[in-house]
């Protein structure tokens, strides 16, 4: 089987906070149509990687590139880097250098969406409003940057209907349709997690970065979440980059796993390969490589 074309390419990513190296020379590839999992013990630097990809942090070093459309766009990578520009857009595809873009353009132009480890909803706005805020950029254009919208001119009404339709689609998929008019802050925890995913999907991303989406969910909700993530991959042409602590989720749905420990990549491969990797087990158990077997015996693996 030929590997799917690369969607996201991270090279030599390093992020330092003062003396602390949170991410150290990390490189990996996320492929189109795949679910790529990023795992590692607490404080390994996973969220920091997300923050670098989505433009919230400017990496100390490294290159983060995303391609839309044709895989041939990858040929532009070196010229673009040398030119010092942040993107090339052709009719058949586009290439973006995320480390050069401010956070809101990463979402708006490079179409990389994210959720947060500690949920960030607009809690005083209704579920539906949350989903409309996510469609800000296209709606803003349709309202003529508010000038036509105020006067009720132009195609704003049509654009808003389309936006509501998209919101309804995601509410259906996440099982929130009956709570559409309730404030987001009043939803139970599991529903808030799903709403955050629905909201980031309303930005039409090519890559969705989920930061511990299963944290705090019960087994039933967690199973439903797996279904949702799989359907995002299979039916919406959106690839997924997933941070997760729950190994059952990771092993079940991901196509590719990358393991971080103290900011360094220690494994990269299929779920099965990673699960049996000595280094990974050592990192998770918190012991040196050569003591793994003794430790495994101790915890009964």
């Amino acid at each position: 089987m030929k590997a799917a074309p690369a969607l996201l390419e991270v090279e030599h990513l390093t992020m330092r906070f003062g003396g602390l190296v949170a991410v150290n020379d990390l490189g990996f590839t996320a492929r189109r149509g795949e679910i790529t999992a990023l795992i590692g013990p607490n404080g390994a630097g996973k969220t920091t990687v997300f923050n670098c990809i989505t433009g919230f942090y400017k990496p100390t070093e490294g290159r983060i590139a995303v391609v839309h459309g044709e895989a041939r766009m990858w040929d532009e990578l070196e010229p673009l880097t040398r030119r010092g520009d942040r993107k090339v857009v052709h009719s058949t595809g586009a290439l973006f250098l995320l480390e050069r873009m401010p956070d809101y353009l990463v979402s708006r132009q490079a179409k990389v969406a994210r959720t947060f480890q500690n949920i960030r909803l607009f809690s005083g706005m209704t579920v539906l409003e949350n989903l409309l805020v996510a469609q800000h950029a296209p709606l803003m254009r349709a309202s003529g940057f508010s000038l036509f919208g105020i006067l009720g001119l132009g195609g704003y009404a049509r654009a808003e209907r389309a936006a509501l339709e998209k919101a309804r689609h995601w509410l259906d998929l996440t099982g929130l349709i009956d709570r559409a008019d309730e404030p987001a802050g009043a939803l139970p925890y599991g529903a808030q997690r799903r709403l955050e995913i629905a909201r980031s999907m309303c930005t039409d991303p090519v890559l969705l970065c989920l930061d511990e989406p299963a944290a705090g969910l019960n087994p039933r909700e967690s199973a439903a979440l797996n279904e949702l993530i799989l359907s995002i991959r299979d039916r919406h042409d959106t690839s997924v980059l997933l941070i997760e602590h729950d190994m059952s989720v990771v092993m079940e749905i991901s196509d590719h796993v990358i393991v971080l420990d103290y900011g360094v990549k220690i494994a990269d491969g299929s779920p099965v390969a990673v699960r049996n990797d000595q280094k990974v087990i050592a990192a998770y158990l918190g012991v040196a490589d050569d003591e793994v077997e003794a430790a495994e015996a101790e915890v009964g693996l």
Partner: peptide, 16 residues
């Protein structure tokens, strides 16, 4: 209003 609720979430949704 979204800005009043959560500025970081706004930025993650492409709002300048």
């Amino acid at each position: 209003e979204a800005l009043r609720e959560d500025e970081i979430a706004c930025r993650s949704l492409g709002i300048d």
